[in-house]
Design a protein around this nucleic acid. Structure first.
Length: 229
DNA sequence: GCATTAACCACAG
DNA sequence: CTGTGGTTAATGC
């Protein structure tokens, strides 16, 4: 974790839709309460149970949002930038209700809760963008929740592979950013079950697999498995 | 009963 | 950290 030089919010190439609608005075508030930090793989951006440090805007990289359950850790979502994280905590509780960890080198801007709230009070359009963000998140969480609880492991792993290819990398060939254990935490399964499922997919010619190196060879079939659970 | 599924456990590279 | 084999409890036909 490394603090960077002061950034310029106005000319930021990763400027969010929300920040896009701020006027110069509001941008000034943001500018003075925003610090840019870079995280390496496996470094924690938010720690579960710690006092919240404000909203974080992920500019580049990749992160996992996860939370400790009664039995084990669970990955709630994998977030690709640009995206705000930590909104529910800032608007709700005083302690982080979940953890966020970098999966690769990740650039983040932290914005203090107070100034973030101030911007919401000052600018309705800004608030609207933030609400849109929260709504999208909740809807996709509903979908994932249903899919995860009603599908068998083949369907859940197929979902994860399609998600990585389609949503995260935009490529059927990619380096899986999660290790087997994390992948298990992501699809509600044990790492052994994930290993076996992936081997089965490979044997059936659906994917090519070499460690973290994944390539989807038969997406139509994977989608079918995803649909049928 | 019998088969299937996936967790659990142990151990080896 | 990952793959594999054996075991086991739960579930469905």
């Amino acid at each position: 974790m490394k603090q960077l030089e002061k950034t310029n919010c106005e000319t930021c190439q990763f400027k969010s839709c929300a920040v896009e609608v701020l006027d110069p005075a509001e941008l000034f508030i943001l500018q003075n309460n925003c610090s840019a930090i870079v995280f390496q793989r496996n470094e924690k951006i938010f720690r579960e149970g710690n006092p919240h440090t404000g909203v974080a805007y992920v500019k580049s990289g990749l992160v996992k949002v996860h939370k400790t359950g009664p039995a084990r850790d669970q990955i709630l979502k994998v977030v690709k930038p640009p995206r705000f994280i930590g909104l529910p905590t800032v608007l709700g509780n005083k302690l982080n209700q979940y953890a966020v960890t970098a999966l690769e080198t990740t650039h983040v801007c932290f914005i203090s809760s107070d100034s973030f709230r101030k911007l919401i009070m000052l600018n309705g359009k800004f608030a609207n963008e933030i609400i849109n963000n929260l709504c999208q998140d909740e809807l996709s969480f509903f979908d994932r929740s249903i899919n995860q609880s009603q599908k068998h492991i083949n369907g859940r792993v197929a979902d994860a592979l399609l998600f990585m290819a389609n949503e995260i990398f935009g490529n059927d060939s990619f380096l899986m950013p999660l290790n087997r254990n994390d992948l298990g935490d992501f699809v509600h399964a044990r790492r052994e079950s994930v290993t076996r499922t992936l081997s089965r997919f490979r044997k059936d010619g659906l994917i090519s697999l070499n460690g973290k190196n994944l390539r989807l060879l038969n997406k139509a079939m994977l989608e079918k498995i995803s649909r049928n659970g």
